[in-house]
Design a protein around this nucleic acid. Structure first.
Length: 550
RNA sequence: GGCUCCAUGGUCAAGCGGUUAAGACACCGCCCUUUCACGGCGGUAUCGCGGGUUCGAUUCCCGCUGGAGUCACCA
């Protein structure tokens, strides 16, 4: 049979058959309904926020009883970057996404369905292409790039569908002898699919997020194997996801239009097609056009996952944000289940939005504030130390100088029923705690505008005399109140409002003066706690310095 | 341009033939309060347009407009 001859000519050195691989990679034997998903990036080393989102969705889809694996799609040497794989693995790990199988670094993998790196799977792809050639479903094509460009030009001029098909597929029926002669001559070739599609054919399928989709059938003789013998994305996708038993292919919706090709490939290969879930991209408002566009690696710093690490957004907070984008009902669930792990939330592909969401930094920040507010002192301390060790050495050395002191600072009003939400990201910590460290305390005083210098001086001078560091918290404010009365201020805002002409202000204003003297600021957390943390000597020193500066 | 997807406030979005059109972020006001934050209460603001179908369309159908994606030996 001629096809056998062709197959031998092209793949004489291939010794295994598809059947061999089917046996090597048997059914996974998972529980009924368990899902197998994957994240399949090119190892460019740059983890895009959109890719993180895709990986997040894939891992949440697999859930606890499924399998989520990492496959490296490195079939294009031009795009490859040194350390690209480790960049991907670490990038995911930073956000708590750890695949159950797949590549773990540039050379090692775990799992029984590997190799998980496409450049190491050529022998597998070749066995399947050989079989296709044998069956007359694929053929070598010797067209040069110039020839193809020529054809494309003509097709564009004629307003025809561009691509290699029908009369343009000039090597479709090439004989083995002819091919042999060309190869002997040193001609290069690709292997193309002999597409069984009909020009008027339509296909329809159900996408897990887009719903029912109808499209023209693929009629193009797409390339299966490039001239260097590596597979195209399309072909590798079909072979890999079949052999690795992927049940749900989650990927960016830029792939939606190639589904007809993929479904056809699964069909000719005799594979059961996986379910597809095409995820809408995360968009960004374009300042120039006022419109939306995809989050761009070039234009948007937040497109790089490293941005969040640098800014100090906790990975958990970013995860919460990703989940609110993925399944908007997560927000309601989170309010009802404040302390539960995000893993308990029942993520559903079908609840994903069909349209692309605009990236909202403000929302992320809010979610992050809430997230950090629920962390305990040690967790905050650990996170800040880890972050500052990498991104703010000065802050780090300050904190490490006296870790107990730092923890006392972080514990102020932490753990309340209604916790403060002062910190949205770790890079805000330095400013937040600045007045606890002389090195950061700038000596600028933000005195209230309605206070005269004389009053400020009087309050501080007198307060210095009555200050008792040993007073328990409940006695502290009454002391301020009596000082207020002594100096002509009302005891409470109510008293003051009732008769503003009789008072210079109220006890709150007096406390405010003390606050500014001690911290330099008009607004702070609980002043008593701050003073207790600073210590008696430091408080007195700050008040003295303040008085001198007036 | 062909093919395809999408379309509810500023943003994320519930809704799936009859609703005062949820909720969250942001914004504004009030309350609580020694400041701020937190919290509570309230407010501004949304169904792209035009046709159908129907007793009745945000919801179903068609067209338009707008946005996005794709048309490689890149993924």
């Amino acid at each position: 049979m001629a096809n056998t001859k062709m197959a031998q000519l092209l793949f004489g050195n291939v010794d295994k058959t598809p059947e061999d691989y089917e046996i090597m990679y048997p059914d996974r034997g998972l529980n009924e309904g368990a899902k197998v998903t994957r994240f399949a990036p090119s190892p460019t080393g740059f983890l895009h926020f959109g890719s993180l989102f895709a990986a997040f969705v894939a891992s949440k889809t697999a859930g606890d009883d499924g399998v989520f694996y990492l496959r490296i799609e490195d079939t294009d040497k031009k795009r490859e970057v040194e350390d690209g794989v480790i960049g991907m693995v670490n990038g995911l790990k930073d956000f708590g996404i750890i695949p159950t199988e797949g590549a773990i670094n540039a050379t090692d993998e775990v799992g029984a369905y590997g190799p998980y790196t496409q450049s190491r799977r050529n022998h597998i792809y070749h066995a399947y292409v050989k079989s296709l050639v044998e069956q007359g479903l694929a053929y070598p094509c010797f067209m040069t790039e110039d020839e193809i460009a020529e054809i494309r030009k003509e097709q564009e001029a004629q307003k025809e569908l561009p691509g290699i098909y029908g009369k343009y597929a000039k090597y479709r029926d090439i004989t083995a002898d002819e091919a042999q002669a060309r190869i002997a001559n040193g001609d290069e070739y690709v292997v193309r699919l002999k597409s069984p599609g009909k020009p008027d054919g339509r296909i329809s399928f159900k996408d897990e997020v887009k719903g029912k989709v109808e499209m023209p059938e693929n009629i193009l003789d797409i390339v299966l194997l490039k001239k260097d013998g590596t597979p195209t994305y399309h072909f590798a996708h079909a072979v890999d996801d079949h052999l690795m038993h992927t049940t749900h292919v989650t990927r960016g919706d830029e792939w939606l239009s190639s589904v007809p090709i993929h479904l056809q490939l699964f069909y000719v290969l005799g594979f059961k097609a996986p379910k597809y879930a095409h995820i809408s991209p995360i968009m960004k408002e374009d300042a120039e056009t006022g419109g939306k566009r995809k989050l761009s690696k070039r234009k948007d710093p937040e497109a790089a996952v490293s941005f969040y690490a640098e800014a100090g957004y906790p990975a958990g907070a970013v995860n919460e944000y990703l989940m609110t984008i993925a399944n908007s009902n997560f927000e309601d669930w989170r309010r009802a289940n404040k302390t539960d792990s995000i893993d308990k939330f029942d993520f559903k592909l079908s609840k994903m939005s069909k349209a692309g969401a605009l990236f909202d930094m403000v929302k992320l920040h809010d979610i992050s504030k809430t997230y950090i507010s629920t962390m305990n002192t040690d967790e905050v301390f650990d996170a800040v130390t880890a972050w500052s060790a990498e991104y703010d050495k000065e802050l780090n050395s300050l904190i490490m100088r006296d870790t107990d002191y730092a923890k006392r600072i972080f514990s102020i009003e932490r753990g309340n029923k209604k916790p403060r939400k002062d910190i949205g990201k770790w890079s805000e910590v330095k400013d937040y705690i600045a007045y606890f460290y002389d090195e950061l305390f700038d000596g600028k005083y933000d005195w209230a505008e309605n206070m005269s210098k004389d009053d400020i001086k009087a309050i501080l001078t007198r307060y210095k005399e009555i200050y008792n560091h040993q007073s328990p918290s409940e006695d502290w404010f009454p002391q301020v109140q009596s000082l207020a009365e002594e100096l002509g201020f009302a005891k409470s805002p109510k008293d003051y409002k009732a008769d503003p002409d009789s008072f210079k202000g109220h006890a709150g204003d007096v406390a405010g003066v003390i606050r500014v003297a001690v911290t330099g600021r008009l607004n702070t957390p609980d002043l008593y706690s701050i003073m207790q943390t600073l210590g008696e000597d430091k408080v007195k020193e700050r008040i003295n310095t303040a008085i001198e500066g007036i």
